[in-house]
Structure formats: C-alpha cells, structure tokens
C-alpha cells in the first residue's frame, strides 16, 4: 500500500514537472512582451475586415450578423451591418471607451452603455471597447504545455471588467488559443476560444472566436473572420460619431 502511494506521488511529480516546468526565458519581461504582441494580433492597426457573428442560446433561433469593419489602432473601429436585411445600414462605432449605434432612420447616433450585451451576443460592449490588455493588466506566465503557455493577466486596478484573465497562448505563433475571464471572486464568467490562425499583415491572427457565457447554459457567440486586409489609411471621419450618417 505504502509502495503504491509512493509510486503515485513520484509519477505525479514527474508528470507535473514535465507538464508545468517553465522554461527560464518565461520571465516577467517575456510575459509583458507577449501580452503586447497578443494585443497587436487581436487589435490590428489599420484594417478593413468582414466577419459573421452568430449567437446561440437555448430555446432561441441563432442570431446571425454579418459586419463590415474598418479599424484603426486598438481603440477605433466602425462596424457596418451587412446582413440581416432588417438591420442593414446600422453602424456601430467604437471610439476609445465609447460605443455608439447609428441607425438610418434615427436622427442621431445613440451612445450604448458599457454593461449591455453587444447586439444580443455574449460579448458585452465592454469586451469590445477595451482597447488591449497591456494597459490594464499585469502579465505572468505560470504554466507551459508543450508550445502552449499560460499567460495569467491580473488587473492593475479594480476598475476594469475582469479581475483576472487566463490566456493560453501558442508561443510559436504568438496567438492565443483560449482565454478565460474571471470575476473578483475568482470564478470564471466567460470563456473565449480562438482558432483558425492566419497570417495577415505580417502577424498571425486567430480569425475565428467563440465566446461562451458561463452563467447561461448553452449561450455562446461565434465570430468568423471572412476577409481581412490591411489598408494604408482610413478617413478620420469614419470614427467620428457625428459623421456616422455619411
């Protein structure tokens, strides 16, 4: 019996060492740099892209949108709804911390609250409006599984949406594969899965994402990037809420 126990402990230690032993290079500085790279890959510079966003909820028809997006830097993007037909012409503008919705037959853009869900998805407006993580989170690498490393982001202050984000990152491609968002209590609230990494604009970016709402069973939103091209410039008026009707 004692032998068996000892054997188990040894095996566990061995397995643990193999799985979780961190390479020496994964220090604090590396982690911070990696986070900045991830930020760059998720929030490209000047781009035009199109994507579909489909939300699934138990007992409901899937809610599918197709957007055409112009973005500049991490904190500015304009999303135009291409389909469904009933919402065609609607635009959503992300400008720093602010989110605006424009509708063709409403005289002025409407400012949306950060707490609201984004267009019926499992993303909150806040999830979209946050302009990269490096500003608000300290990064630390705590685990390594082959080429995957676990980047743990902890909030620098208590005024951000999530207290902690655990992000699995492919160290070779420098793209995330999964991110789990935690509340202050340490309980997971949402989980994002990244897939289909492609090289666009010199960086490998995950083109598909799936955001799972852990509070509501069966609720998740799938984002699929259809096209993505780097632009030389985007006119500034695009990101001005007073010009959204143009």
């Amino acid at each position: 019996m004692k032998k068996l126990l000892l054997f188990t402990v040894v095996m566990l230690l061995a397995a643990g060492a193999g799985l979780f032993a961190l390479d020496a290079k994964f220090d604090k500085a590396y982690a911070e740099k990696l986070l900045k790279t991830v930020d760059k890959s998720l929030y490209p510079q000047i781009f035009k892209s199109s994507l579909t966003m489909t939300t699934f909820r138990n007992g409901r028809e899937p809610l599918a949108y197709k957007y055409e997006i112009y973005s500049k830097g991490a904190d500015k993007s304009l999303m135009k709804i291409v389909s469904p037909a009933r919402d065609k012409g609607k635009k959503i503008l992300l400008n720093g911390d602010n989110l605006w919705m424009y509708m063709p037959d409403v005289s002025r853009p409407i400012r949306l609250s950060r707490k609201q869900a984004f267009m019926g998805s499992t993303f909150s407006n806040e999830d979209l409006a946050s302009s990269g993580w490096a500003d608000n989170y300290n990064a630390e690498i705590t685990q390594q599984k082959g080429t995957l490393i676990l980047l743990v982001l902890s909030a620098k202050n208590r005024e951000v949406a999530y207290a902690k984000i655990e992000m699995w990152i492919d160290d070779n491609a420098k793209v995330p594969t999964e991110a789990v968002y935690f509340g202050l209590s340490g309980k997971a609230i949402k989980k994002m899965e990244f897939s289909n990494p492609q090289t666009i604009g010199g960086l490998v970016r995950p083109l598909d994402m799936k955001m799972v709402d852990l509070i509501e069973e069966g609720a998740y939103t799938e984002v699929k990037m259809l096209t993505m091209e780097e632009l030389q410039s985007v006119p500034e008026y695009m990101f001005d809420q007073s010009q959204m009707g143009r």
Partner: peptide
C-alpha cells in the same frame, strides 16, 4: 450563481 458588479464596475460571479 450570483452575478454582480463591484464598486469599481468589475464583473463578479460567485457560487
């Protein structure tokens, strides 16, 4: 599950 936001508007979820 109880979900709420903290005084700093941070999301929080507890069992």
């Amino acid at each position: 599950l109880l979900f709420s936001q903290t005084v700093g508007n941070m999301n929080n979820l507890v069992d």
